[in-house]
Design a protein around this nucleic acid. Structure first.
Length: 438
RNA sequence: GCGGUCGUGGUGAAGUCGGUUAACACACUAGAUUGUGGCUCUAGCACUCGCGGGUUCGAGUCCCGUCGAUCGCCCCA
């Protein structure tokens, strides 16, 4: 059997690749607008970059591609963007700059050993931004604005923003205990998953789908009651700032996120389109107070978010937003005699030197076949090169839309003719291949 | 990692209780039409049904395994 790609990976080509690139252009353009600079870090790092002491998240504990190199060092393919960025910031002392916050962004591939499904691949792409060195709810809000603006620019409409505060690590620890106490009496009535969550991470019981209606869940204490004054004020300020910025959001007291390093602010961008599948989070992020220090940097607080590029693509497709396949050819050169092929290539090269996108036939096939190829290429102009033209040192041009034909012997004249035809905007739609995203 | 569904050409797919030549459509190639396409007509286009094994006189059809896709769980972007 033919060799197949690895499960959960994807080959990119055609319109989908084009759509992906277009997305990335928007990301870079917006980050420039917001003053975030691009950073690129290696695809793999020492395992301890991602795996930190006491980390309970699945992403880190069971979904990493970890292997030993020849020197018996444990290396890991990055499962998320933030950790590598933190390491790079510390290693290169990027934090040592007069103007804080330090604002960076990345577009990178990530690897997670999960079972694939819609919106979840083993090798996927994340766009993320991080801002370090200033702890302010206003900065949290800026990041949310950046992510929101991206979705708006892409014309994604079916989404909502949910936010929450999970407080500092002490508040969270306290809340965990409150929850354990709350659920202890009814533990026997909860599902198997919840019994496990009770031990591992009681916060997760809150968004259980099975026990959703259990009175103990409905009446569960909310985290806001466990927050200290500082965190409560911080969250209030964030809400105020978002409202002032015209950002609509919901508060979800049950929003807890999968990575362990978050403190205070957490947020998610959820697609509300029914076609998105079970993996409806387009992006998410939050504040982290202790991450930079973990890597040996100063005790700087940061905020960041990540967005799944593939998920954005799915959301766009599900909302019926299509990318049009661009024509990649201006002129199709028809060569009518096999003996003239070398000369035809010379002509094509000459035209290409004038920045005209030329495709040509390499087999001197029948005119009919060449016309078909020309049509498929999307070229607005066809140039004929056969015995007659070779004899007179000329080229015959045909305007595909108007059927107009002229024979021109002077190369300067060729260029003038081609440019004049190409610059005329053709109103009539000439078979624009509607490009679906999948 | 676990569970459901699925796997036939370049594409969409038909294939009846296992029965011998794998339908149909689109696309593609060639010709009708030897320097002007998009219409029409004609012809061609799957030594083989994801892969491996088994049952059988006979398997695309049944069984087992495996790989992959898809949907969901867990979890996450």
């Amino acid at each position: 059997m033919a060799i197949q790609k690895i499960k959960g990976t994807k080959d990119w080509y055609g319109v989908e690749l084009q759509a992906n690139r277009e997305l990335q252009q928007w990301m870079r353009a917006l980050c420039e607008l917001y003053g975030y600079k691009e950073v690129e870090t290696p695809e793999f790092e020492k395992t301890e970059v991602f795996k930190r002491e006491g980390d309970s998240s699945d992403v880190v504990n069971k979904e990493m591609y970890t292997f030993m190199d020849a020197g018996n060092r444990s290396l890991t393919l990055r499962p998320e963007g933030t950790a590598g960025i933190m390491r790079a910031i510390v290693e290169n002392k990027l934090y040592a700059q007069p103007d804080l916050p330090l604002k960076v962004f990345y577009i990178s591939s990530c690897f997670r050993a999960e079972n694939p499904q819609k919106g979840r691949l083993r090798l996927f792409h994340q766009f993320g931004a991080e801002a370090l060195g200033v702890k302010s709810p206003v900065l949290d809000a800026e990041l949310i604005c950046l992510a929101k603006t991206l979705l708006d620019c892409l014309e994604i409409e079916d989404y909502k923003i949910v936010i929450n505060s999970i407080g500092d690590s002490e508040s969270r620890k306290a809340y965990r205990e409150v929850l354990r106490k709350h659920f202890e009496p009814v533990l026997g009535e909860l599902c198997e998953d919840c019994k496990r969550r009770y031990i591992q991470n009681p916060l997760r019981i809150l968004d259980c789908k099975v026990d959703h209606e259990h009175p103990a869940l409905v009446n569960a204490p909310v985290i806001s009651q466990s927050l200290n004054q500082e965190s409560t004020d911080y969250f209030a300020k964030l809400r105020e700032t978002l409202t002032r910025a015209g950002v609509e959001y919901e508060i979800d007291e049950r929003l807890v996120r999968g990575l362990d390093y978050y403190t205070d602010t957490v947020f998610e961008f959820l697609s509300t389109n029914p076609g998105i599948g079970a993996q409806s989070a387009l992006g998410g992020g939050g504040r982290y107070d202790d991450l930079l220090a973990y890597f040996g940097g100063p005790a700087m607080s940061g905020v960041g978010f990540g967005m799944g590029i593939e998920r954005l693509l799915i959301a766009l497709a599900e909302e019926g937003k299509q990318f049009e396949e661009e024509s990649s050819c201006d002129l199709y050169l028809m060569c009518l005699d096999e003996a003239l092929l070398p000369e035809a290539l010379a002509l094509a090269t000459q035209l290409r030197n004038w920045r005209i996108r030329v495709q040509m036939d390499f087999q001197a096939r029948s005119m009919k076949s060449q016309f078909k190829s020309a049509e498929r290429s999307g070229a607005k102009i066809i140039a004929f090169y056969g015995e007659e033209e070779a004899r007179t040192g000329s080229l015959k041009f045909k305007n595909v839309d108007t059927q107009e034909q002229v024979t021109i012997s002077d190369p300067e004249g060729w260029i003038d003719q081609i440019y004049s035809w190409l610059q005329e905007p053709e109103e009539e739609e000439h078979e624009h291949h509607d490009a679906h995203l999948h």
